[in-house]
Design a protein around this nucleic acid. Structure first.
Length: 169
DNA sequence: AAAGTGATCATG
DNA sequence: ATGATCACTTTG
């Protein structure tokens, strides 16, 4: 059981999203215990050129964390009630992230954050240097299915068609 | 099919 | 300051 190194998080979000499928998401709970669930579904958001990406409109206080070096969490609130967990990837200055859409036992980005106790206090927390959240690799080999991303009707048709959602089969 | 819920961002 | 818009979930 090993933790991915920095180089794992410096990959482009497309490669990272594929690699993150099958990894184990580990989250420290308030009582000190750790919840572990295998990641089964991801999507990649590919920077200012990607009309579906929050950073499409440039750097703001909200998107600032996406511009950091890969390996930190980007967590934001959607529809007033759902915390969405992303892993920032790529080099500093490249605003890319991987949305975690499902883990074993919880399908849906809002569901898994609730299950694992992830809220906006995790925004900016490091997967490499913190003991609150990290990934583990147990050498599980996953086969992936590729589909269009969910819930991005505001993006251009071209970007909606991209096969940037990955599901472990 | 539609509401529920609040941060965020573009307007003025 | 105000208002539209959401990387969604649940209920009917």
């Amino acid at each position: 059981m090993r933790k991915p190194e920095l180089s794992f998080y410096l990959q482009d979000a497309y490669e990272a999203a594929r690699a993150i499928c099958g990894k184990i998401l580990c989250v420290r709970q308030a009582d000190g215990s750790v919840l572990r669930r295998r990641i089964t579904e991801t999507e990649c958001y590919m920077g200012e050129e990607d009309s579906a990406c929050h950073a499409h409109r440039g750097r703001t206080s909200r998107t600032d964390v996406m511009y950091r070096q890969g390996g930190v969490a980007y967590v934001y609130l959607c529809y007033g009630m759902h915390n969405m967990l992303n892993i920032v990837t790529g080099e500093e200055g490249h605003p890319q992230a991987v949305l975690i859409r499902g883990v074993e036992g919880a399908s849906g980005p809002g569901r898994l954050t609730k299950l694992l106790g992830i809220d906006r206090s995790f925004n900016g927390v490091s997967f490499l240097d913190s003991d609150r959240i990290w990934l583990e690799d147990d050498s599980f080999k996953s086969t992936l299915k590729e589909t269009p991303r969910i819930g991005i009707g505001y993006a251009t048709e071209e970007d909606q068609k991209k096969l940037w959602r990955f599901v472990v089969v």
